[in-house]
Each structure stands twice: as C-alpha cells, then as structure tokens.
Write a protein that binds this DNA or RNA. Structure first.
Length: 680
RNA sequence: GCCCCCGUAGCUCAGUGGUAGAGCGCAGUCUUGGUAAGACUGAGGUCAUGGGUCCGAUUCCCAUCGGGGGCUCCA
C-alpha cells in the first residue's frame, strides 16, 4: 500500500527488468508495469490479486510479486463489479439529491446496496430515475482512481459526510464496525476513489478501500436497481434508520436476465402463493398473524409427512409422549425460559383469582403461559419417577405445538409463524452414550430428510457465545468436541458458526439445498448442559451412584409448518405421489367412459390411493388443463380404444403420455410410485 | 419492534370526491369422443375496520387490524 498507483505516467517502454509470477508462471517485466498493461489483451480481467490481496488493475507490479488476473465472472470479480456499481448508484443519488448523506455501499450476494440518509424515502419512481442516471454514468466510462489520504485529509474532504467521518474514526475496528463497513475502511491507511471523466474532471468521490473496476463502462447493461428499504445504521436498532437501495449487477445482460428469471421462478414457487393456488392452507385474519389453518389438501400432505416420520421414529427406538399447550409460570421459571426468552413468549393469562366480599384478594391469581418449547415438559416426564441406567438412552418424541410471540415484522408465511408444531425429541443419555447417541441422531435425520426428497446437505457447528451462555467451560468444551467429531465423521462439509449456539449448549444444524439451489436450515441436534442441572435430573448408575444424564434436543423438520413450506417450494407444488393430495385423476374422453373409469378409480381406492373421477360437465381438454394446474401426478385417461383393450392411458405432469396400459399394470405402477416415494 | 409500500368479488387485479368493473373460479342451461380454456346466462362486493374532513368518502387525513419488502430478532 506504499506506492501510489494512480495518475502515474505510463511505465517506460524499456527499463530495468523485474521477475514476477503471473498466473503461476515465472516471467520478467519492465519495472513499473501495471496490471492494465500485463492483461491488455484480456478484457475479462478486471482486478489483480497481488500476493494474495485484491488490487486495482492499474496497480504497478513490484519485484517478486505473485500476480493473478481476476476475471469479472469469478466470485472476487463479481464482488468488485457490484461494489463499483454501488459507487455509481451513490453518484447517481447525489446527482439528484446533493444533500444526501452517504452510508456504506458493499457488494452482497447477487448484487449490492448503498445506504443513504435522505429526508424523503425513495419511491419506485425514484429508482427508475436513478436507473437512468446510472446508465448515463456507466456509458460515460468514468475511471475509478485510487488515492491515498491521511486521516486528517480524509476528514477535511468528507467534512459534510457525518457517517463517513464516523467510519474514519472506527477504522481500526472496521471488522466489528458493522455489516459492510470493512469495504469502506480497512485496517491500513485510508483511500479515496475518484470517479474521473474522460476529460479529466472528477465526477464524484467516495471513501473506500477498493479495489474497483478500471471503468464504469464495464458495468455495461448488467446492472439494475431492485428495491428500497430501511436499514439501521451499522446494523443496530439503537441507531438511526437509513434508506437502503438494493441493486443487482452481472457481467452481461444475459446473466442479469437469467438472474431475474431465477427470482421469478422463486416467486412462482413461493409457498404462500402455492398455498392459496392449491388450496393447502390460509391465515385467517380473525385468528391472528402467524397462525395458519390447514385445508383438506394441505391436511393430507401434513398427515402423510407426520405419519411417515412417526413410523420411522418407532423403528428407531423413540417413545411417544404428549404434553399440554399451556402451563403455570413455575415450569418456565424453573427452566429459565422466562429469564431468557420472556420477550418471545405470549404474555401470561391470569387465572383462579378469588376475591372476598370486600373485593380483597383472597387467593392470588396464577400466571399461565402458552408453551414456547417442549423440553421442560419432557423433562417432567423423565423426572416423574426414578430412572435407571438400564432405561438410557431414553428418547422421548412428540409432535409438540408451541407458541412464540414473534415480532410483527418477522412473521412470514409458514416459515416464521407464531404457532407451529415441532417434531421434537429429547434424548436422555449417560455421558458415555452421548457420542453414539448424537451420531445415531444425526444419521437418522439425514436418512429421513432424503426420504422427503432433500439430499444435498452441509452441516453447521454453532459454538458458544461467551456473553450469552451458561455452564462450565469444561462441559462446553466436551460437548462441542463431541459434536464436531460426529459432524466430521459424517463426511459432510462442516461450516463453523462461532458464537451461534443457544445459551444452553452447542448445536449441529443440517443445511439442505432445494431444487433451485437455495439453502434452508433444517434439522438441529443440540446438546443441553443447562436443563439437566436446573431440574437436577438423575439416574441410578450400575454402581448404585446417582449420575446426571446429558440431554440432546433434536428436531428434524424443525417445525412441520416450515418443513411443509420448504417442501412446497422445493417441489414447486408438484409433490411426489406419496405426498400429493390427489394422486390420480381419471378423465374420460367422453361421458360414455365414466363408468369404465369409475371402476378403475374404485380399484385404486381399495388400495388406499387418493384417486378421483372427473365427472364434471367440462369438456375433455378443459379437464386435462384443470388436472394439470392442480399438479396431480397421475392423470388416467380412457376412451373407446382403452376400454376395449381393458387399458388406460397415462398423462404425466410434463405433458408426456403413455397409451394403452393394461389396468392391472397401471395400478401396480401407481402403487409402486407411492410405496417408493418417487417423483413422477 | 422500526422504515417504506399495499388492502376493491373466492383468486388475480382495473377504477372513481357523487355508493363499482374485468378475467379466472362458482351456479344453471345448452353443448361436448383423444391430451392446457365450448357457448350463453346468472349469483356474488358495508371497496379491511373505526374515527375525521366534506353537502357527499371506496377515493382525502388519522388510528387499528392484516399483508408485502427490508432492518433488527429467530430458544
């Protein structure tokens, strides 16, 4: 960072030669050569990596440097492209509104944002106007020029930018200054990037550590503003809210279009949309925010999901329990939930108060709470009598409905609801059994998730947050090591999540990728070091001593509602046969064949298949269309040819068909699809 | 919880300071023999709720409820 890199005369054509390594090959270049010259024939190279650090293309090479060209379509290249697009956005905003105070503008996944302090929030019309201004700036071909400045110089230049001044003051702690702040100020010296027009005048400047594209022109027409929203300055709700504009940027217009198509696809799959279209569930206003009702078709899917899970849990040695939805405060005082999570719980109901004739309280009211977690209830089952080591591991399972008072702004369809049902298990085991139990639990959940159609996983290990946790260091250490060991032995990719653990113990979470590449946090396996202590859980060991069991919390779906939403989006509403609300729709070519098909339907029903005959007055093509829109896996068609041959014709979701299939074969094929849980 | 946007028929959405419209869906009649919309007729709305401004409010203003996009949060 000690050599100035911009506004220097071109390197001399001849001069002392230096040795450098370029893209892995040793070579010599004239001293003072820049990346621009080195990669002059390769337009896709927009940035350099010199000795492992990203630098502007205009950086000069020094002797011994290891240099790589970074292509615009690489992850680093894309980040630089998007960061530069954020600068163009800020320039456009300042051009329209010179009084704006600039926040930060980092790249994010698929795009960028920039935060502004403005009097009036941005409107959609503002975004359209800004898109136009940006296009003009991009077309101008302004170059990004790096300039090193001292703290005092920066303060003088940015005197009217209070947020930038704050960042300058924070630069030594940039990593913790807030989301994105590190792209503005690094730990080293400060730099300002000037946007210079072709005539040499400075169009705009911003405090920024870079690097940037050589020219705005490289943003091309792959950038577009997406939306505006509020965001807290430096990510804290104690700070003022700024107006954030989100944009996306891609190396080419085609990639931009592909990205917009992906967004459209995600919208088509949105479980809230499909829930209405397919008549699966709804959120009646009268019930309240975040509380769903499942309609008959959604009910079938949910029942199938639960039934299969229940069967597998029995096979895996779990015991089924049931607990109430409401409890006296005492239980959650004991468990510590009222200390840690009272904000997230529905407020108490006060019951059983009795007054005497004078209106004085004769008997104090009791506080009752809706339960936000099942574990304390399961613990009471464990504690209902003395336990022996012979009973361990004791695996208690329940589809337990819980209620959490989620803040109004976070409620989101079925994925973030206020009432939901956990497929919740608590395993009580001895310390010696701990590792085997965790291994068993993790293997079990992965295996089961695959049966529901998810098979691309990685694991996350959430470890202790020292400021928000209970329990001894030794126990945390042992628990974390055990989880890590199990995770590593699973062979799956493991990502660290430092400080992400709940207060009571570390956890492994399973992240699953869906059909369009989005990841969802699914199952969790958590060790609890807290509750066995608080409830003084014990068992009699083989040697007659009293021992404390360990407790493992384990949920597979997390919440059935949420998993339902994930599967709906994963399958885009086209569920595999075993989950599909209607598995077979029989459509006669004409009314005359209704009787023939009715018999086939009856036969399927005796096998438990959810089959129905379309005897509506619609015409044949309309019936096909209706079945298609309902995403029914098997459409059975019969006309004269089929009836004479004792056959039916299949029509599948993709429009393909198979004619003249003998009824017995067709039935077996449908049954096999249900049995094997295959997608069709 | 905070900021912005939204709330009109079952669904998707037009529209207006003088009490409303389309398409789909639904009902009925006629029609209908091979792979994504046959025709016609009809029913259906306190324009989310409550206040306010106004001669008059679905329309303008405020509040509440609900939804959306973010931020913060997510045991």
């Amino acid at each position: 960072m000690s050599t100035p890199e911009s506004d220097l005369p071109p390197a001399p054509a001849s001069g002392p030669q230096i040795s450098v390594t370029v893209d892995g090959e040793a070579t010599t270049v004239t001293e003072g050569t820049t990346g621009t010259e080195l990669f002059s024939g390769r337009r896709e190279i927009v940035v350099l990596r010199i000795d492992g650090e990203l630098r502007d293309l205009s950086a000069r090479l020094t002797a011994g440097a290891v240099v790589e060209g970074v292509s615009v379509d690489s992850p680093d290249g894309l980040a630089v492209l998007r960061h530069s697009a954020a600068h163009v956005l800020a320039q456009a905003v300042q051009q329209i509104n010179p009084d704006v105070k600039l926040g930060i503008g980092p790249p994010v996944t698929d795009g960028f944002y920039y935060d502004f302090d403005v009097e009036q929030p941005f409107t959609p019309e503002d975004l359209k106007a800004l898109d136009k201004v940006m296009a003009r700036i991009i077309k101008e071909g302004q170059s990004f020029r790096r300039r090193e400045v001292s703290d005092d110089e920066a303060r003088a230049e940015l005197a009217d930018q209070p947020y930038k001044l704050e960042l300058i003051g924070l630069k030594s702690t940039a990593d913790t200054a807030g989301e994105g702040a590190a792209v503005e100020v690094g730990a080293g010296g400060l730099t300002i990037y000037d946007n210079v027009r072709r005539d040499g005048t400075v169009a705009w400047k911003d405090l920024c550590r870079g690097p940037h594209l050589p020219s705005t022109r490289l943003i091309g027409n792959g950038a577009q503003l997406m939306r505006s929203a509020a965001a807290y300055w430096r990510g804290s709700e104690k700070n003022p809210q700024l107006q954030r504009i989100y944009g996306t940027a891609w190396p080419t217009k085609d990639e931009l279009r592909a990205y917009l198509d992906r967004l459209a696809e995600a919208e088509r799959r949105d479980h809230r949309r499909l829930g209405t279209e397919l008549d699966l569930f709804s959120f009646p206003d009268e019930i309240g925010s975040g509380l769903a009702v499942f309609h008959p078709k959604g009910g079938i899917i949910r029942t199938e999901m639960e039934e299969y899970s229940r069967r597998r849990h029995i096979e895996a040695g779990y015991s089924f329990v049931n607990t109430p939805h409401i409890t006296k405060a005492r239980l959650y005082e004991l468990s510590g939930h009222l200390d840690w999570y009272a904000d997230g719980m529905y407020p108490p109901m006060q019951l059983d108060e009795e007054l005497d004739a004078d209106g004085n309280i004769r008997k104090a009211a009791q506080d009752y709470y809706l339960k936000p977690m099942n574990c304390p209830m399961h613990i009471l089952i464990y504690r209902s009598r003395g336990r022996s080591y012979r009973e361990l591991p004791l695996r208690l399972f329940e589809f337990g409905t819980v209620y959490r008072y989620e803040k109004s702004g976070v409620v989101h369809g079925l994925t973030r609801a206020r009432g939901f049902t956990q497929d919740d298990a608590h395993i009580f085991a001895s310390r010696e059994q701990m590792k085997d139990e965790i291994t068993h639990a993790l293997g079990f959940v992965l295996d089961l998730l695959k049966d529901y159609g998810l098979d691309d996983f990685y694991l996350e290990l959430s470890t202790r947050n020292p400021e928000k946790s209970v329990g001894s260091d030794e126990l945390w250490q042992e628990a974390t090591d055990t989880l890590r060991q199990v995770a590593v032995e699973s062979g799956l990719e493991l990502v660290a999540d430092p400080g992400g653990a709940a207060f009571y113990g570390p956890k492994i979470s399973v992240q699953a990728k869906d059909a369009i590449g989005r990841t969802w946090q699914m199952s969790t396996v958590q060790l609890d070091l807290n509750l066995p202590e608080l409830f003084e859980l014990e068992y009699a060991a083989a040697d007659g001593t009293r021992q404390r069991p360990v407790m493992i919390h384990r949920a597979l779906f997390g919440s059935i509602e949420r998993f339902f939403a994930v599967l709906t989006e994963h399958y885009a509403g086209a569920f595999p046969t075993w989950l599909a609300p209607v598995q077979v729709r029989a459509i006669p070519v004409a009314e005359a064949f209704e009787g023939y098909l009715a018999e086939v339907v009856a036969q399927l029903r005796t096998h438990g298949v959810r089959a129905e005959l379309d005897s509506s007055h619609d015409r044949f093509p309309k019936k096909i269309r209706t079945a298609s829109k309902e995403k029914i896996p098997f459409v059975l068609i019969a006309g004269g040819e089929d009836a004479e041959a004792g056959a039916v014709s299949f029509r599948f979701r993709d429009g393909s068909q198979e004619n003249g299939v003998p009824v017995a074969v067709a039935v077996e094929r449908i049954l096999a699809s249900i049995r094997d849980r295959t997608q069709v």
